Amino acid sequence: MTGKEKNFDNLYQKHWSELYAFAYNIIRDRAIAEDIIQEIFIDYWDRMDLVSIELPRAYLFQAVRNQCAKALKKRTFNEVQIENIAALIPELDEVEFDEIKNRLLSEIEQTASSVLLAKCLTVFKLRFYEQLSYQEIALELNISQSTVENQINKALKLLRGNTRYITNTHFSFLLSLV
C-alpha cells in the first residue's frame, strides 16, 4: 500500500461514519447519504495529488454540506429552504466545530440531568454515553427492551423540547457523535 493509499484509508476509516451521520441527518435517505459520502471520497482521492488540504475533516464536512444542499435542491426544494439548511450547518474549522459540539453536548447533559427522571436518565446515559444497545441496557438494568425503547423515546422528546438552540437535525447529529 502506498503512502497516498494509506493516508486515504486512514481518513476514510476515521471519518466515514460521522460524515454519513451528518449527511443522513440532512437528507433523511440512507441510499442518497451513502452515495454522497462515496462521491465525496472519490473526489477527495482524485484531488489528493493536485492540492494540499490542510484540514481534511473540515474539507470533507464542507463537501458533504454542499452535496446535501444540491441533493435537496433536486428534490424541488426552493432556494430559501436550501439557505435555511445551509444556515443550520455553518462553515466551521475543526476547532470551532469541536467547541460548539462540546458546548451543545454539555447543554444536553445539563438539561438531561434536570428534566429526566432517574430511571430515564440512566437509560439515556447508557445509550448515548456508554454506547450500549437496547438489549445490553435491558440486561444491565433488568428491564425489557421495550421499556428501554420507551425511555429513550421519552428522553429524546423531553430533551428536544427543553434544549435551547438545537434543532432536530443538530440534536440527532450531536448524539451520533457522543
Rank of each mutant, 00 (worst) to 15 (best):
R65A: 05
D46N: 14
K74V: 00
A33M: 03
A71T: 09
E39P: 01
C68E: 09
N78F: 04
I82T: 04
S52G: 09
I40K: 05
I53L: 14
E39S: 10
E54P: 07
D43N: 15
R47D: 11
D29K: 11
A69Q: 02
N66G: 05
N66R: 12
E34S: 10
P56A: 11
C68A: 13
R28A: 03
A31W: 04
Q62N: 13
F41V: 05
A33D: 03
T76W: 02
K73Y: 12
I42P: 01
E54V: 11
I53A: 14
Y59T: 10
E83C: 02
I53Y: 13
R65G: 07
T76R: 12
N84V: 00
I85Q: 06
Y59D: 14
I82Y: 07
T76D: 14
K70P: 02
A69I: 11
C68L: 05
V64R: 06
P56D: 13
R75E: 12
I42R: 07
A58P: 10
I36G: 06
N78E: 10
D35F: 02
R28S: 06
E39A: 05
K74W: 01
I40G: 06
R57W: 07
D43V: 01
Q67S: 14
Q81I: 00
I27L: 08
N78T: 00
A31G: 10
A31L: 07
A63K: 15
L60N: 09
A71E: 13
F77C: 07
Y44V: 06
E54T: 14
D43P: 01
I40T: 15
R57M: 07
A33H: 04
L60R: 11
I27G: 03
A31K: 10
